[in-house]
């Protein structure tokens, strides 16, 4: 019996630990409002934010904005993943290609996607393309750099083993290099998706008429700080969900690697 009840209690304890901090923040936030320490115009209380959220959901605006933003992010991310992975693998495998591209990558990488907006508008206009381009830029660099790193970390012992077994090059890349680089590649994809999602607001600064970023900017002009907060929290929650999904995929793909889970 104890073996059954204990994990159950344990699980409740873990859930409380997991939610504790967030719940506490909400309670304090609401409490400060009731005690009159914060003005709703500057920081509306959670209840007001929840009400604004409800209104947006009821009118269908929420689903529309979220849907459009997610679609933009996925599009930009997909292109970044495709290019980042293939170029990353090619550069990781070839010293020459690395020398040819390294300087350009290192110089372009620190330029924040938001700085690209003027050029993006000139190149792609103010439609969808320029927004996707900004998101793509955010996701591309973490993906390509982690992929190159992962491939460069191929264990020398396996390289030797493959030489002894006369493993052909294509098989060596497919069976040794890429699986070995997979943990780093997955990290790159995860960070890339996160940055892509964070870029959604920047991208929707470009003449957008919809999307979560637009929702926030529009509400700012109307001084609806509750809607601004709805937008911010929605970005946070969706980002968390995306991260959880990609972590789950990662766990499944890299199930051979026992990892340290903390004490």
């Amino acid at each position: 019996m104890t073996s059954d009840t204990k994990p159950h209690l344990e699980r409740i304890k873990h859930l409380l630990q997991y939610l504790g901090l967030s719940a506490a923040v909400l309670v304090v936030w609401q409490g400060l409002y009731h005690l009159g320490y914060i003005k709703p115009l500057i920081l509306p209380p959670p209840t007001q934010v929840a009400a604004a959220f409800q209104d947006l959901v009821k009118s269908g605006a929420m689903t529309r904005h979220v849907g459009i933003s997610v679609a933009r992010v996925l599009e930009g991310f997909a292109i970044a993943a495709l290019l980042g992975l293939s170029l990353g693998i090619a550069i990781g495998l070839s010293r020459t290609l690395d020398r040819l591209t390294d300087l350009a990558i290192q110089v372009i990488k620190p330029i924040p996607p938001i700085a690209w907006i003027p050029l993006a508008i000139l190149w792609f206009g103010i439609g969808e393309k320029s927004k996707v381009y900004i998101i793509f830029l955010g996701a591309f660099f973490p993906i390509i750099i982690n992929t190159i790193d992962g491939i460069r970390q191929t264990d020398h012992k396996f390289v030797e083993l493959s030489r002894v077994l006369e493993v052909p090059r294509v098989k060596f890349v497919r069976r040794v290099v890429i699986p070995g680089a997979l943990p780093a590649i997955m990290t790159g994809l995860r960070v890339g998706l996160m940055v892509a999602w964070m870029c959604v607001v920047a991208a929707e600064l470009i003449a957008a008429g919809s999307g979560i970023g637009y929702l926030i900017m529009d509400a700012r002009q109307l001084s609806q700080s509750d809607v601004v907060l709805v937008g911010m929290i929605t970005i946070g929650v969706i980002g968390k969900v995306m991260d959880s999904i990609i972590r789950r995929i990662e766990k499944r793909l890299v199930d051979w690697k026992p990892s340290f889970a903390g004490h």
């Binding site: 002894v164 077994l165 006369e166 493993v167 069976r175 070995g180 890299v254 690697k257």
Partner: peptide, 29 residues
């Protein structure tokens, strides 16, 4: 290197992402 010589290293050098049978089959090209 050549397949007329096999080599056992001090460490097993099994590829951690392959199963036992896949590791053995890895030597077959």
């Amino acid at each position: 290197p050549g397949l007329d010589r096999g080599m056992i290293f001090q460490e097993h050098r099994l590829l951690p992402w392959l199963t036992v049978e896949e590791n053995v089959a890895f030597a077959l090209n």
